[in-house]
């Protein structure tokens, strides 16, 4: 993988960089997907920070909770029927206590699904080498293009500079 990127000191110049790249993407022959944005914190009040915002994670979590609860309820009533022992004059499938366990497993289902959904949709863990620069941790915002055609490297470099990048770097991995 190869990439060419610039580091921007503030979100406004980063936004400009994204815009100049978007303007040129058709002419230079790369797709918007190839534009990479990396930041040390979320910038949701700028359009570039709004990329890929849509998610159905809450619905997945709710479904996970439902599955957890149903599985939990099935499991406890199964165990109570599998070895039925009378205690304290209660029924074998004891509804009130089963409700408590069902509740806990509903919440556990929702929590585990949320974590799993986060890991899968945010593509982590991923220890392969991707374009990255430690400057991101110092508050800079990395804007670049991944696997751009050889021919337009210079044009991308020029555009990244014009948006205010102090230094345009290349990445190969």
């Amino acid at each position: 993988m190869r990439a060419i990127y610039g580091l921007y000191p503030d979100p406004d110049s980063a936004q400009r960089a994204v815009e100049v790249l978007q303007d040129a993407e058709r002419a230079l022959g790369f797709k918007e997907k190839q534009i990479v944005v990396l930041s040390g914190e979320p910038y949701e009040d700028h359009p570039f920070g709004q990329r890929d915002k849509k998610t159905i994670m809450p619905w997945i979590a709710a479904a996970g909770g439902l599955v957890g609860g149903l599985l939990g309820f099935w499991f406890i009533s199964f165990t109570q029927k599998a070895y039925p022992l009378i205690t304290g004059g209660m029924q074998i499938v004891t509804k009130w206590p089963d409700g408590i366990i069902t509740y806990e497993l509903t919440m556990l289902g929702a929590i585990l699904t949320t974590v799993a959904t986060l890991l899968i949709t945010a593509r982590i863990p991923d220890w392969r080498r991707h374009v990255f620069d430690p400057g991101v941790g110092e508050g800079k915002i990395l804007i670049g293009v991944v696997n751009a055609p050889e021919s337009c490297q210079d044009e991308i470099r020029r555009r990244l500079c014009s948006a205010g990048a102090g230094d345009v770097k290349e990445f190969a991995g």
Binding site: Y83, L85, I86, T87, G88, G89, M90
Partner: peptide, 17 residues
């Protein structure tokens, strides 16, 4: 006891009817 409070609280059914 017919409805024994000791039986229900045992987590392992050591106490049962």
């Amino acid at each position: 006891c017919g409805d024994a409070p000791c039986e229900v609280v045992c987590p392992t059914y050591a106490s049962y009817h």
